[in-house]
């Protein structure tokens, strides 16, 4: 954690807060009833962005050697492949 910029961290915290609120709002405003899969997509994208911010800045993956990021992505790819292939296999 080299010369940390606490303002940046605070700003990120703000973004995370707002995104979470938007996600809940999508549900409360009934978008899930009107355009379900679109809303699902939007919510998923927001979650991914949030996770990116936490991982990249709070866990400072952005400032580590890229190999650590690949490590994490390797785990993600493995479980996503497992889930997708398993779900597809029973269709």
């Amino acid at each position: 954690m080299s010369d940390s910029n606490w303002k940046l961290y605070t700003a990120i915290f703000g973004v995370l807060f707002v995104f979470a609120t938007i996600q809940a709002a999508v549900e409360m405003m009934g978008f899930l009833d009107s355009a379900y899969w679109l809303a699902v997509g939007a919510i998923a994208v927001l979650s991914v962005i949030k996770a990116y911010f936490v991982a990249a800045y709070y866990q400072h993956l952005k400032f580590e050697p890229r190999s650590v990021t690949y490590l994490v992505l390797g785990g993600l790819v493995a479980v996503m492949f497992l889930t997708a292939a398993a779900s597809f296999s029973i269709t």
Partner: peptide, 16 residues
């Protein structure tokens, strides 16, 4: 933060 990130996915999956 990892525990936090997990929650970021559990929240939409189980609450929304």
């Amino acid at each position: 933060h990892f525990v936090d990130i997990v929650w970021l996915f559990l929240f939409p999956l189980f609450y929304i």
